[in-house]
Amino acid sequence: MSLEPSDKYTDSALRVGERDTYPERLVGEFIGTVVANEWVNAEYKHMILAVHERALGAYAGQFFHLLCPSPDGAEVWMRRPMSIYRVDRAGSRLEFLYKCEGRGTRGMAMLGPGDEFNLAGPLGKGFRLEPGWKNIVVLGRGVGLATLAPLSQLAAEAGVGVTAILSARKPEVVMSRDLFAGLGARTEVVLDSDGTSAVDNVEAILERLIAEKRADAFFTCGSSRLLKLMQRIAKKHAIPGQVAIEQIMVCGFGACYVCVRTFEIDGVKTLKRVCRDGPVFNLQEAVGW
């Protein structure tokens, strides 16, 4: 520790291989090292980070809170929440798939191999697979696919069959098809460019999967329209489901109540914290946004 006055923010995050003074803690503040940070298409990048082993307890649907570097010299004040895209326990790596949008994600996009990146987590309650489920349906769009992707890893490990319906504007921006397929999922792509992403068509696909007994549970993320569709069909057929929700966050630990959203439980509207009570919630309790 330097005893010189410093203008740096305090930082006692764990680097790769460093001695863990709080091994019993569930969560940590880590300094990962960027292994790769490549474009997957015109809008999205895929980051691979080498991290301390305590960070590897993360599971599908949980997130890390990322301290993004500045893209422009001015301060980026708050962390950015980002779902785990993949956990590589053997290689001690975490992966994120992210859309470069505002200042935080643009700053993140500037990182290259060897750079350090501060992340806190794993945070939140992720996806749960119940023992009776043999086949699940995953429906996602845009960044939602980044959140849903590790579910296919979880399902594959549990011997559960996955059908992934990937929705996108046009063929070039379909993401994660290879990741889902590589883990044995059946994938169906629906597009705005040829009209197949329309609600009627997605509804027909879901009905077909139910008829084929491939839908013991529904999972979704990333689109209010798809959420409402899944809720309606799940209700009709009494299919359980889960949805991952996004909201602006500050602390990520459940302390500040910045990240609340409205949920409806047995007809009563309540607020829940996305960071702590979620980000994965019961499909039927979510109120679209």
């Binding site: 923010y9 305090t10 930082d11 006692s12 004040w77 708050m78 501060n118 602390c251 990520g252 630990f253």
Partner: peptide, 9 residues
């Protein structure tokens, strides 16, 4: 918020 471990540090 910035560094969850800040207080202890």
């Amino acid at each position: 918020f910035r560094n969850p471990t800040a207080l202890v540090t």
